[in-house]
Simulated scan of single mutants.
Amino acid sequence: MTAAALAIWTIVVVLALAVLRREGSEGLLAAGGTAVQQGKALMMRLPLALLAAAFLMQVLPVELLVSVIGPQSGLAGILLATIVGGLLPGGPMTSFPLALVVLQGGAGLPQIVALIAGWSVFAMHRVMAYEAPIMGWRFVALRLSSSLILPFVAGVIAMVLTTLLP
């Protein structure tokens, strides 16, 4: 068992004990039911997302993308990956497999960090569909301008860490 899996199992056990103490067995059953429902949805999506990523690897011009966000692309590649990440449509079931395909194709790790961070922070599809209609454009402008540099900084930090910790 990996350290991450052990940590997750520890958290699950601690939370289960807290629910049991607070809500009793009914709370555990309710939580288990919710987990099963979410698991079913995930089990339907995850294999399809991985299959789509495998197909995407065959048709995506990975070499072209790697040439501009490869390990040698430096700060310019990190900036480009940040922008591309913000424009990626879809949720984690499409974005993470796509990032994995590009990483396996030879993209730089700091650039992929910037890509995922850009997707997480900017996600223009989410801004247009949910954030602006619900929160308003003033809020969107404030949030985007205040977090504008975050994905780029994440990529730069990843670049520094990958050179310090090979």
Rank of each mutant, 00 (worst) to 15 (best):
Q58S: 13
A52N: 08
K40I: 15
S147W: 01
A81W: 05
V160H: 00
G32N: 08
G39E: 09
S146D: 00
A114Y: 04
L79M: 10
L46P: 09
L64F: 12
A4L: 15
A4C: 01
G118I: 05
T34Y: 09
G106L: 07
Q72C: 00
G24M: 04
F55D: 04
A132Q: 10
W119F: 06
G24C: 08
W119K: 02
V19I: 15
G108H: 04
G90N: 04
L148D: 08
V19C: 05
F55G: 15
L150Y: 12
Q111C: 10
G70Q: 05
L144A: 10
W9M: 14
L29Y: 11
S67H: 11
L98R: 01
Q72Y: 00
V113W: 04
F96K: 00
A16W: 03
E63R: 12
V113L: 02
R143A: 11
L42H: 10
G77I: 02
A53T: 08
V156H: 02
M159R: 08
S67Q: 11
I134V: 15
M57K: 15
G118V: 06
L142K: 11
P151G: 03
L115Q: 05
Q72N: 02
T10S: 14
L165P: 02
F152S: 00
I149S: 03
P61E: 13
L161P: 05
A107K: 03
A3Y: 11
V140D: 06
L161W: 11
L161E: 03
V127L: 14
F152A: 03
Q38I: 15
A4N: 10
G86K: 04
R22L: 09
L79F: 11
G136Q: 10
L46S: 06
T162L: 12
T10W: 08
A53P: 07
L29R: 15
P89Q: 06
L164T: 08
I11V: 15
